[in-house]
Simulated assay, not measured.
Amino acid sequence: MQGGRRRLDASVAPEYDLPTREPRLGSARTARLVMIGVFSMWVVGTLGAASSVVAVDVPGWVERPSAALLMLVFTIGLIHRGGGHMRIWVPIVTALGTAAVVLETYFLLASSAVVCAVLAAVWAVLVTRPAASVLAAIREYALALVVALSGTVSVAAWNAPVNYQRFNFIVVMVSLVVAIALVWNLGAGLHGLGRQNLAILAGVAALLLVILAYSSFVRTHGSQAVVDLFSDIVVWSRQNFEGVPRPVEVFIGFPALIVGVSMRSTRREGWWVLVFAVIGTAVLTTSLVTPGAFPTYVGLSTLYSVILGLGVGLIVRHYVMRERSARAARAIEPIERVEPPRFAALK
C-alpha cells in the first residue's frame, strides 16, 4: 500500500450541484426561435431607447414604447435565468409598461423606470458565466456592462420626473434585495463560506458602508472646507477630463463583478461577491434618469469608472484566485465548476 496524502479524484468531470427545472419549450427549434425573437426585441428596444440620448432623426413617440419593450425583455431574461414563473410576472410587467406608455402619469412613469433599472441591473449579473481565466473574466465583465447600459438608455427613455438621489437609493436597495433573494435561492447560503470568503464579503460590506456613510455625512454635516475640496476636485475633473469616475463603481461594484465571475469558476460562493456587483450595475442603470443629465459627461464618467474598476478588479482577482498554500495544492486537484449554459435556467 502506497503511503502519502490522498488526493481528491478530479478525473471525473463535476456536475452542476443544483437541480434545474425541465425546459419550458420541448422543441429545440422552437426554443431557438424564441431566443432569436427575444434577442431581436432587445436590439430593437435598445436602439429605440437610445434615441432619447443620441440625436437621431426618429419620432419622439418611439422612446417610451422602446423602453417598455426592453422592460419586457429584462423580465423574460431574469425570470428565465432565475427559474421563476414566467406566466405570473410577464403579464404584470406588460400591463405596467402598456399603462405607462398610454396614460403617462407620474407614478406609472417613475415605477416603470425603477422596474427597468432593477431588472437590468440584476439580469446583467445573472447572465454572466464562470470565468477561469483573465480573458474570460474581462469578456463576462464587458457583457454585463452592455446589458446594464441597455438598462441605462431604457431608464432615460421613460423621461420620468424623479429626484435622482431618491431614485438611485431605491434602485440600489431593491436590486440588492432581489439579488440576495436569487443568490440564496441558488443554494449559495452562508453555510460553507469558510473564513476567508466570509472575511472577503465582510470587508466589501464594511467598505460599502464606509463609503456610503461618509459621502452622506460629508454632504449633510461636513465642514465647508471639506465640501469645497470635493467640489473643486469634481470641477477640476470635469474641466480637464469632462467626466468624473464614480467611487462606488470603481472600488466596489465593478471589481466585485470581475472577482465574482472568477470565483464562480471554482467555488459557488462567488455568487455572494456578485451581490455587490449589482451595486455597480444599479448605479450605472440610474445614471441618465435625470432629464437634464448631459449624456457626454455621463458617458465619459462611465468610461473612466469601467477602466479603473477593471484595473482594481484584476488586482483583487490576482490575490483572491491564487493558491492558498502549497500544502492545499497537494491535497486537492483544482477542478472547474460547472454551470448551465448562459441562456439556460440556473435552478
Rank of each mutant, 00 (worst) to 15 (best):
M1I: 15
R6S: 15
P14S: 13
G26E: 05
S27V: 07
S27D: 12
R29I: 04
T30F: 10
T30Q: 08
L33R: 05
I36H: 12
V38E: 05
P59V: 00
E63G: 12
E63M: 08
R64D: 01
S66K: 01
T75S: 01
I76P: 04
I76K: 02
L78S: 06
R81K: 13
G84C: 08
H85S: 15
I92R: 07
V93K: 06
V93I: 14
G97L: 13
A99K: 01
A100F: 03
A100L: 04
V101A: 08
T105M: 10
L109K: 05
A113E: 04
A117Y: 05
V118I: 10
V125E: 04
V127H: 00
P130C: 02
P130Y: 10
A132T: 10
A142Q: 01
L143I: 08
A160M: 03
V162E: 06
V162G: 04
F167Q: 05
S175I: 11
L176N: 13
L182E: 11
V183Y: 00
G194E: 00
G194S: 01
L208W: 06
A213I: 09
S215G: 15
V218F: 07
H221G: 04
S223R: 04
L229Y: 09
I233L: 15
Q239E: 12
V244G: 00
P247K: 13
P247V: 13
P255D: 00
A256H: 07
A256N: 07
V259N: 02
W272S: 15
A277V: 01
A277H: 13
T281H: 10
L284D: 14
L284W: 14
V289F: 00
L303C: 02
L303N: 00
L310R: 10
G311A: 03
V312E: 05
A326Q: 06
A329T: 06
E336Y: 00
R337V: 09
A344I: 02
A345F: 12
A345H: 03
